[in-house]
């Protein structure tokens, strides 16, 4: 008797699942493919993406590197402005591990930015400033004299310069990770990221706010900030990381005012080039007022890191 009762309950539950699936299936199919549905808030997406995070043996939070950050500014059509870079004369002011790590990221971003605009002499100066930071942190051979010579020999070869910058950054971050100094590696990444955000906010032409690619890049950093927070939270037992996490929380408070919604991603592969395109659209409510608030916060944080 009890057996029959459980069978009945099981059958009812199974039928309910099937009916629910059919209803959901019908709903999603009804809209067609012409108009994307902007029903998913990026914050919900972030949380969903990080679900079941502890199942894997190893978790990586991949921040945009200083090279990628600088490239995003450049590819958005921003002009070059050397006055915005952290002066290399400041290099002597950084004596703590935290300030050296932050400014290793900042100088590497400035170095990448100058290199992408073919500013060869500036690139060499910034590579020397980055070397001072790496040497101060005891990162052996991340940037050697030979690296500087290679840079000078390839002043007219942007691709080679990018390769050298990427190699030196990888040397620094891998050295810190291998030697259980992950906190400094994260601080360095945050330094580079904040510098990129600072350059982007300063280079926006406020007269052409609508449809400005650089503005889009700044909004996109809401996604990267989420990864920054996760990365820092993992290491918040380190007092320097805890301080920077507080800074990032201030930035997050402003980014939370920006609502970004996205449509579902579909894929399409070009058989000739073998490149897959992830198709989707996003919308946001970013305003010049929010931009001004964000810009001021980024400037004050960056100011506190370079002094």
């Amino acid at each position: 008797m009890a057996n029959n009762f459980y069978r009945f309950k099981f059958a009812m539950a199974f039928m309910l699942i099937i009916i629910s699936a059919l209803v959901i299936g019908c709903k999603s199919g009804g809209k067609g493919d012409k108009e994307p549905v902007f029903d998913v808030d990026m914050e919900e997406i972030d949380e969903a993406l990080f679900d079941n995070i502890n199942q894997a043996k190893q978790i990586f939070y991949s921040m945009p590197s200083p090279l990628e950050t600088a490239m995003l500014v450049r590819s958005a059509g921003a002009p070059y402005n050397e006055d915005l870079l952290n002066p290399t004369d400041n290099a002597g002011n950084y004596t703590t591990n935290c300030s050296m790590a932050l400014n290793l990221g900042i100088y590497t971003c400035d170095l990448s930015f100058a290199s992408l605009y073919d500013q060869t002499q500036t690139s060499i100066s910034y590579m020397s400033a980055a070397k001072k930071m790496a040497d101060g942190l005891g990162i052996l051979d991340a940037i050697s004299e030979e690296t500087l010579e290679r840079l000078e020999e390839n002043v007219n070869n942007r691709e080679m310069i990018m390769d050298i910058v990427s190699e030196t950054f990888m040397n620094s971050s891998s050295y810190l990770q291998e030697n259980d100094r992950q906190a400094l590696s994260s601080i360095m990444l945050v330094g580079g990221w904040v510098e990129g955000l600072y350059l982007a906010t300063k280079l926006v032409d406020e007269d052409s706010f609508e449809g400005n690619k650089l503005v889009t890049r700044i909004i996109d950093q809401k996604l990267s900030l989420n990864i920054v927070m996760k990365m820092l939270e993992d290491q918040k037992s380190n007092p320097d990381v805890a301080t920077i996490l507080t800074d990032m929380n201030q930035l997050k408070a402003i980014y939370e005012k920006i609502s970004v919604t996205t449509s579902k991603i579909t894929t399409s592969k070009d058989e000739e080039t073998q490149v897959t395109t992830l198709k989707s659209e996003t919308r946001n409510n970013f305003t010049p007022e929010l931009f001004a608030e964000l810009s001021a916060k980024v400037e004050s944080l960056r100011e506190s890191y370079i002094l």
Binding site: L49, Q55, A56, K57, Q58, L72, S75, R217
Partner: peptide
């Protein structure tokens, strides 16, 4: 064993 990586990828890149 598995590893997971989280990253933001940017439009037009």
């Amino acid at each position: 064993e598995e590893a997971e990586l989280y990253k933001t990828f940017y439009s037009d890149q």
